[in-house]
Design a protein around this nucleic acid. Structure first.
Lengths: 347, 347
DNA sequence: CTGTCCTCAGTAAGCGCTTACGTAAGCACT
DNA sequence: AGTGCTTACGTAAGCGCTTACTGAGGACAG
């Protein structure tokens, strides 16, 4: 394999000049530049990323840590976390700065080690909520800059970006109340104490309070964030002496499961019961009735997180920042809206 | 930031020993090991990936090049290429070997440069079909091992893995003919000369020939792989004096678009016209009628590609290999099947 | 003619690891 | 005591770049 020395010799300059040309800075003539580039081309030389990284203390890579990339979803199922959109957003922001994105799931066999190995290869890390224990997070934070993604509680001294779950849930619930006049609403959570679910429930309660309706202490049911969980949750709700007019789910998957249950029970949606989800996964448009939901700006989340990371890398001691991205209510049939209309954004 | 020297001094050993301990090999006592690990922990030391890479000529990273990660899909739309599944498969295989995955899209502003920059940071590259020109591919291939993903034509001297598009299309078309007795079939392609589309069309023709039916020269229409393209293609097909009984689409997106057109035209599916897609995207289960389609083993593709890459890295001069992964017909309502049943795999 | 500044380019000292090689000590067996 | 093997560890030479420093030469002002 060719090295910078070969290229330098072949083009008759020093390695310093080759380096300068490759970095694209200044300090060389046009003629020199051409000679160097020609030599590099002829030798098919690609500067070693490792050597560059070592000498310049910048790898040109940002890391993205997911909780469980390696999960065993049925193929053909949506991932509840929209990994791909986040990755794309991150990739876009990184590419704009000439960086690449290294990804890793933390929940696999060798997860923890992997994370540390990734940390050693990057200039900074974007960590999704739930990927790391507080301890590991702290430890990692001591060796590279970290931005938390979708972690409601900005960790001590770390930057964070998240979607406005609470505002989104409030907005969609208000739409149900104000736009359609429902007075009996229920909320279905994912799993006990899941931060996303709790925030969305808080937003749900905000809207009820605002409308002067009575506020439940806890979600009417829990569905584990899955379709089948949503089916069961809906069964539970139907068992109540007086089922609600509308129910808000903590994510789309559960809402879609609930739709199946309702179809089987021959309960017309939205005529007899209105349904709303959260996330706007791809399937939400395709189920019948199409699902009213709240869109999370997943791609923007990834993009902003990486931007924040760059800022932190450039200025390690700047003030920490917590960015909150607004969500968007997407109105479809399941809430009772006739046409597909989009409401404004929250916050 | 701590270095190996600090750790060595603190634990009273040489850097060589620290290195050996970190690599997890042999050549040190248990007591030494503990001392080193303790020192490393106290100093929050993470070995520099760059330095490691430079000294050992292994970065522990595999690269994944996509054509257009940075595309501007509507959020909430499926990506036609199942990027996330491929990424997961790749990540799984890489993680199993202790490696991480670096991803990059090649079609963005700085795409080409990015690809070369990625090439310099990895031990090998998995390149998706359509990401690189033959020239660039050759050039990259001269500096790192490359495995082609989903590229029908294994490039000179490169390993490749792909799904059995032709076999899958043949299988699903045969099902339409043999299973349901349709004799008038049409095929809708994506874009002119798109390799995937052409292979699937070839499989479609195989099945017709096998059944002794007359074989069209070209697809009945082209839909550009998008939903709206599928809607238009179906309009075109309906304009024919005698529309077919069944139509096979080169991907699910177009088939789903076609379903919309048919619903609006009040043509019952599958009663009056049967529909089949290709890919088994998430939405295929959710549209009504649910879409009969062919599942591509996307995750396996990613996994196999990375495995192949490791083999090539380990043995640079071994014989090149081309792996063909079988596809699976997924029967749902849109072809005329009553219940959701799964047929066997192809090839 | 001298001093100053600017441009283009070379010299060489690292960057933080890995690893080939060397050494010393311990042990078993002559 | 000598030989040979094994284990445990240190020495030091890189790996292929970047960059601070230095310098040569030319342009230009005084």
């Amino acid at each position: 394999m060719a090295t910078i020395y070969h290229v330098a010799r072949r083009s008759g300059v020093s390695t310093a000049t080759v380096s300068r040309v490759m970095k694209g800075g200044t300090g060389f003539s046009a003629a020199t530049r051409e000679r160097v580039l020609a030599a590099a081309g002829e030798l098919a030389w690609v500067p070693s990323g490792s050597a560059r990284g070592l000498a310049s203390r910048r790898t040109g890579i940002v890391g993205l840590i997911f909780p469980d990339l390696d999960n065993t979803d049925e193929p053909g199922q949506d991932s509840p976390l929209y990994f791909d959109q986040i990755i794309r957003g991150a990739e876009r922001a990184a590419t704009a700065m000439g960086d690449a994105v290294l990804i890793a799931g933390s929940r696999c066999a060798t997860g923890r080690d992997l994370v540390f190995s990734v940390a050693s290869k990057v200039d900074g890390l974007v960590v999704l909520a739930g990927s790391l224990s507080k301890r590991d997070l702290d430890q990692i934070g001591r060796s590279v800059p970290v931005v938390l993604l979708a972690d409601r509680a900005a960790h001590r001294g770390m930057d964070g970006v998240a979607a406005d779950n609470r505002g989104g849930a409030r907005a969609i619930t208000s739409h149900l109340i104000v736009g359609h006049g429902y007075r009996e609403l229920a909320f279905v959570g994912g799993v006990q104490r899941a931060p996303d679910s709790m925030e969305r429930f808080a937003g749900f309660r905000d809207a009820l309070k605002e409308a002067g309706l009575s506020i439940p202490e806890a979600p009417a049911a829990l569905g584990g964030f899955t379709e089948s969980g949503g089916e069961l949750a809906m069964h539970e709700i139907l068992r109540a002496p007086r089922p609600p007019e509308a129910v808000v789910f903590a994510n789309d998957q559960m809402a879609i499961g609930a739709l199946s249950t309702l179809r089987r029970a021959r309960i017309p949606v939205p005529a007899q019961m209105a349904i709303a989800g959260f996330d706007d996964i791809a399937a939400a448009r395709h189920v019948r009735p199409a699902l009213t939901t709240v869109r999370q700006p997943m791609r923007d989340l990834g993009e902003q997180a990486v931007r924040l990371l760059f800022e932190r890398v450039a200025e390690p001691d700047g003030a920490r920042r917590a960015v909150l991205l607004s969500t968007e209510v997407v109105l479809r049939r399941s809430c009772g809206c006739g046409a597909r209309v989009r409401a404004g954004a929250t916050s």
